[in-house]
Each structure stands twice: as structure tokens, then as C-alpha cells.
Design a binder for these strands. Structure first.
Lengths: 405, 405
DNA sequence: TATGGTTTGTTTAGTCCTGAACTAAGGGGA
DNA sequence: TCCCCTTAGTTCAGGACTAAACAAACCATA
């Protein structure tokens, strides 16, 4: 029988799928231009993908002055991915379709410091997966607050979770028998932003998250900068003052000790703006009511953050700065201090750098993690390693399962 | 007649030449491993290069347990490159062989603000070139203090030179009829460091220059980060204090207003450590003699620099920090303040990041510029554009000039 | 002095991809 | 209506590259 050449690691086939998932239907010519491939090759590849049932031809597009384009779209039943956000006290799940659209979410309490946490997590994942659609599950993306040795291996160290070299990748892989990609949560978020959000039109941007801590992901030429030890983006520990409260890292003067939600709450409690047991919500309410002291707390934090990010703009020269995270809900109050400090600290040539605040949803973290799986096809550099290959294989297998021995 | 296939843009052929230039002779097997190419292809490519006279077979290497390797070396007469450093009051030239070794240097007074400066520069270059060896000149690398739109185009804006969109690349190209590559001088230096210096064994590093100003080049995965507008690495304008002397960029509190040579001299004059007309040399002498006030000036600057670079280490997670520039001559005095501040500001996981001080020579800036030409073969991404192609073509042409129509 | 192990280098068959020439399918102006 | 222009998509010849098998040249050990 005429066996198809092979289920080879065809990065380009996957790139087509990823592009269609991220940007919606496109013509062959458009795909060829976007992915920098020749029209000739695009004909070949799409022929295969159509034959495999991963793509389908849509209606004609009105002519652009020449022959009208025949659009190609994903067959949405071709696959799904699951994303997990791991926090110290809970985990959040999402299931997304191959086109990145969220199908289902869930959240469960979780004790990250328990000895059996990995098995617990595997169990929770198993039951979440079981409730999903019948589309083949391409893989699982896991976002963690901490540094990850590599997406492919998935060994995590995190002060926030009190984890030290935890092999979450290998364990989940063994327990679930699925490809598992592990990544720092800010980086995962930036990847989602790159594929589906404001980063879609920018190959160089800085994504800053404001929340319990403060973090950043650096995207240069469309790729996330991970640094030598996978720990790039730790802007929370940039020194901004000669002294101050002690940071979790052991030093004083770190940005994070002044501008994280915890720092704001601590300051507000010290100044008796909010009750000793109250949290960020109380501070926000006070500021919303026009309490000048509360507004000042946000303003001071915004000021420091603005100057710090201005420094990063000088160092990295990004096209845009994107703000993300739970803390962006209060951005109205932050910006009062941020904007003037940020603009004033920039050199004239950079003063126009746009700062965008992305709309935030509860599921965003987990959705970012799921994107790790959907973005794998874009992974021409092989960052995702063997796990990436497995995701690609599963994508092809479902189209022609009879070829499996 | 049997014409050779063509003088095509063969990046891999050039990569072989660049590798041999940077690392000395190597065997085919070693080249294949280093450049991630198959041994089969290496056989093919080296056959061509040997035939073209760009390579020659050297003696056998003693066996490593198997068949002894036949080493391949560059034919040093295959080419040369010229590097230019442009400063506001002078220009410096070097001529280097294809293996990166400096053959000749020169320095000329130059007024960067004169209206005819480009023609003057072209004239100076012409006479410098004329005095060189007979090896074919592959191209000219130009290093400038400022931002460059792209190596290939070479339009320069520089506050230091008071240049605004000066088309130095196009002008020199037209006047000299040679490929011209223009780059920010710190980036050029980092490229040299990557090819011939401490960066050779590191794909992720931060190169910081100390001199009249302070600058940095960021190398990630072996590639220089240029940023969206080509202005990455402007660490001189990171805000480090809430107030201070006014910076050339118009703001206050910039790192450069505290730690550049000019800032040190100004401080020393204010404190009457040195005479009103004295310069950095006088301050260094005072510190050398044990003058506590002079030592303190260096110490304070080192302190600020240490904290700022610690922040960068957190953001970029480099493997090593390399210090360069004229100011490194005084590093003994700087380090007194730098080391404790730098280490203390780092989070524990990063505390071991090595800081290396590269030996500095007068010709280093211009040598870095020349490296732009020699590094072009490594330029798989096509950063050098058409100019890079021209350099490659010239490399091939000289081997078979009779094929030129 | 065989014999096997190891590393280097070459040959061969075949895959991936591109450039160039081509066909297909529309629009607009004389 | 006819002709030319533009854009979309296909076919085909050929170049770049690789994997795999093979040949070459050395060492170590029995």
C-alpha cells in the first residue's frame, strides 16, 4: 500500500496550522508571504494538510485586483490543548480549541508545599481532561511562578511555591502519558500575547505583569528571551532604592518591595489607610472613594515602576510595553504616578513608546500556559524539544490513525 | 567552458571561513560539529573552497584514537578588512587580515561637525587603504557612537557626534566602491568579543563599556540585541537617582551623569581633588597615590554602576559580564566600590555571575569595527543585507577573477 | 599480527525547498 | 469586446542539505 512519505517533524506544516489558529483563515499566497516560504512549497504543504483533514478550503475571497484567493481554514475538531496555572494555594485549568478559543475553565484548591502535590495535580488534571471535548488532546501546558530549566524538561525552582528542582514535567508526562510543556508563567503569558494579543503586530515588546509580585517577559524578534539560566525577566529585583523592606530574595531596595500588591497593602496598613487585616481590595476602594492617602500609595508605586520600566526601555528598545496581571485592574490609580515618571525618565527619542494595558481575565494565566502547546508549531528553534515533536506527532496522527502500528 | 555553478550567496561556505579565522585551523569533522552541518556537506564545501584557493590542507593532527584529522587552514592572502572608529575629534583606522590579526593602525584628527566631514572621512580612508597589503579588501566596517538604522544601510544619529540621519554608509560606499557596514561602536566591540575574545565561549553575555560615556551591548544566543529602533543598550540613561546633574539627554538622575569619566572629573573638580583644568589622568594619579577623596570618587561611581548592572543581570540573566573601554584602565579603583555593591544587589541564585575585565588597547574600537566585515559570514539572518552579500562575493571573486565579465 | 574499536572523511540516494515559467481567474480601459 | 494588468496558485528542474552506508587510517589488545 502507498504509505505517505512519513510522519516527519515538519515544522512548516505546523507553522501553517499555528498561523491559521492565531490569525484565522488565510489564502495560500498570504501564508507563503507571512511564513517566508515559497508559494510552490505552500501548494505542496497545503495539499498534504487538506488530504489529512486538518485544513479545509473555504469560500473565495473577493478579488484584490487579480485572481481571487481561496481561503484555507482549520478544521476545529483537529485538536485541543489544556493549560494549567500553578499557584501556591490553588490551580486553574483551561481547555482551548486548536484555534486558541477557551472552551472550558476550572479552578481547584491546591497545596503546592504538600509532599504529594505532583500526584494530586496529576489527579486533578486527569479529571479535568476527562470532562473535555472528544477532539484529540495535543498536550498540556503548565505555567509556574519561577524559573524552569527548559520547556521540554520541566524542572522547576520557585521561591513562591517553595519548590527546588521539582521535576513536574517528567512526572506529569509519566502519569498522564501526554506531551507536557512547562514554562515560567510570565513567559507563557507573553507567548499568548504574541500569538493572540497586542503582541501580534509586534516582534519586540516588553510584557510586565503586576500582581502579588512583579515580573516581565522580554520578546525580541518574536522570541522570548530566557537568559543563560532561564531566569531572565526578574525585574522585581532591580535595585531602585538604597534601603527599604527586606525582599524575599534577601536584599533590600528591590523594586518588588515597593510596587507589588503585597507591598502596597503593607504600606497602606502602616499608614492606617486600611484596617490591619484588609487587603488590596480595601485600598482600591479607598482610592476609588477619593481618599488622597490611598491614591498616594498607588501614585508612589506607579512612580517607581515608571522609572524602572523607563530604564528597561533604554536597555531593550522595545516597540511597545504591555501591562498584564491582576494588578492592572487598579491601573487607573497606578497611572497617576506612572505616566509622568515614565515619560520624564525617557530620553527624547524614546518618549513616544506606547504603554498598553491588556484586558485581564481570571483564566488568562492558564490560557497562556495552554498557548505553549498551540505555539509549539512555531517553535522552529526546537526549544520545546522532544515534547514539541510529540505535540506535532499527535496533530498528524489524529488525521491518519490507521497508520499507527 | 565548464563554468563553476555560480558565485551564489553561500552562507555556509562563509561560516567555514569565519570560523577558521576566529578559532584557527580545524578538521572537517570538527567544522561539521561546530557549525552543525553534516560531515557529508562539509566534504563538499571544503572541496570547493580548496579548489578556489581560499583554504589549504595543513599537516595531519595526531590521532585521537581513530583516523588522524587533516587540518584545514585559511590562506591568509585571501582577504583583509579595514575598521574605522569615528569620534567627535578624531578617527582611528585598523587593517586586519582575514584571520582577524591587526596588520596596521593609524589615527587622524577629524571634525565630526564639519559640513564636509563625510568627504574628508572618505579621503582619509582612501589614503589609509592605499598603504595596505595587496590582499583583496573585503569591505569597511565603521563604528559610531550612536544609533544606526541597520548595518546594511548605515544611517546614523548620534548626540555625541551631533549627527542626525547622516547617510555615512551610502556615501562611503559611493566614494570608495566597497562594501561598507556601519554599526554602533559598542555593538561592534561586542561582536569582536564574541568572535575573538571572552565571548567566544559564551552565547549570552552583557558587554559594558566605560569611557567618556557608558554603554552596553546585549548578546543573546550569540546574536546582538538591537531593539526595535536599533537603540538597545543605552544603559547610560537608566534612572538611578531622583535628582542630579542634567544629562545630555535632558533628564536628571541618569547613570551616565554619575559614572562616566566626564562625571568623575566634574565631581573631582567640585571637591577640589584635582585642578580645575585637570582630567581623568589626574584623578587616577591621585587615587594611585592613595588620596582617599579620589578613591572615594571612584568608589561611589563603582557602587552605582554595580547596582545598575545587578539590575541588568536580573533582567537578562547573562552568563558573564564583560567590561571594556578606556575606563577599564582604572578598574582597580572602580572595583573597590563595584564589587560589594554588585554582589549585594544580586539575588542569591545570580550571585556567582562572573565579571571579567578585558584587556584594552587603543585600536580596540576600530578593530571591533573591522570585525563587522569578518563577521559577515556568520550572518545567517542576513542582518548585513546586500552589503554582506557584497563582502561574500568579494571573498569568492578573488579566488577566480577570470570569471568576472 | 590479526582483530576489533574509534574517529575521519567520502559516496550515494533521497528529502526539502526555491526560482522560474506557467496556468487560472479576476478587473479595467480603449 | 479585446487586450493588458494584477494576483493566485501549480508544475518542474535543480540546488542545498542530510542520513546512512562505506572506506580510510590510526590505536590497543590479545
Amino acid at each position: 500500500m502507498a504509505i505517505r512519505p512519513m510522519a516527519r517533524t515538519d515544522v512548516n506544516r505546523s507553522a501553517i496550522l499555528a498561523h491559521l489558529g492565531a490569525h484565522g483563515p488565510a489564502s495560500r499566497a498570504e501564508l507563503a508571504r507571512t511564513l517566508s516560504l515559497s508559494p510552490a512549497l505552500m501548494t505542496q504543504l497545503t495539499k498534504d494538510l487538506l488530504h489529512d483533514g486538518l485544513l479545509r478550503e473555504l469560500e473565495h475571497q473577493p478579488s484584490q485586483g487579480g485572481r481571487p484567493a481561496r481561503m484555507l481554514g482549520l478544521v476545529s475538531s483537529a485538536g485541543r490543548a489544556v493549560g494549567v496555572k500553578v499557584a501556591s494555594d490553588h490551580v486553574a485549568f483551561v481547555e482551548v480549541g486548536i484555534d486558541g478559543i477557551v472552551l472550558r475553565t476550572a479552578s481547584e484548591p491546591f497545596d503546592a508545599s504538600a509532599t504529594t502535590m505532583l500526584m494530586t495535580l496529576a489527579g486533578l488534571l486527569r479529571s479535568f481532561i476527562a470532562g473535555g471535548s472528544s477532539a484529540p488532546l495535543l498536550g498540556i501546558g503548565v505555567g509556574v511562578p519561577g524559573s524552569v530549566d527548559s520547556q521540554a524538561a520541566g524542572v522547576v525552582s520557585s521561591t513562591q511555591l517553595k519548590w527546588n528542582n521539582v521535576p513536574i514535567g517528567a512526572t506529569l508526562r509519566r502519569e498522564l502519558g501526554l506531551p507536557v510543556l512547562v514554562e515560567n508563567n510570565v513567559n507563557a503569558l507573553a507567548m499568548a500575547e504574541r500569538l493572540y494579543g497586542l503582541g501580534r503586530r509586534h516582534r519586540n515588546f516588553l510584557a510586565v505583569t503586576i500582581g502579588t509580585g512583579i515580573g516581565a517577559a522580554i520578546v525580541i524578534d518574536g522570541l522570548i528571551v530566557r537568559g543563560f539560566g532561564g531566569g531572565a525577566g526578574e525585574i522585581g529585583h532591580i535595585p531602585v532604592r538604597d534601603s527599604g523592606p527586606r525582599c524575599t530574595c534577601g536584599n533590600t531596595g528591590c523594586l518588588e518591595t515597593f510596587v507589588s500588591e503585597g507591598a502596597l497593602v503593607a504600606t497602606a496598613r502602616d499608614r492606617e489607610i486600611i484596617a490591619p487585616g484588609a487587603g488590596i481590595a480595601a485600598l482600591r476602594d479607598a482610592a476609588d472613594r477619593g481618599n488622597a492617602d490611598a491614591i498616594a500609595v498607588f501614585g508612589e508605586a506607579g512612580h517607581l515602576l515608571g522609572r524602572a520600566i523607563a530604564g528597561l526601555v533604554h536597555v531593550l528598545d522595545p516597540e511597545i510595553v504591555i501591562l498584564l496581571g491582576e494588578g492592572t485592574a487598579d491601573w487607573g490609580h497606578w497611572s497617576y504616578g506612572f505616566e509622568p515618571a515614565f515619560r520624564a525618565a525617557l530620553m527624547p527619542a524614546r518618549r513616544g513608546v506606547p504603554v498598553a494595558v491588556e484586558t485581564w481575565q481570571d483564566a488568562s494565566w492558564a490560557q497562556g500556559a495552554a498557548t505553549l502547546v498551540l505555539a509549539t508549531p512555531f517553535d522552529a528553534e526546537g526549544i520545546a524539544g522532544e515534547q514539541g515533536d510529540l505535540v506535532r506527532q499527535r496533530l498528524v496522527q489524529q488525521a491518519s490513525p490507521q497508520e499507527n502500528s
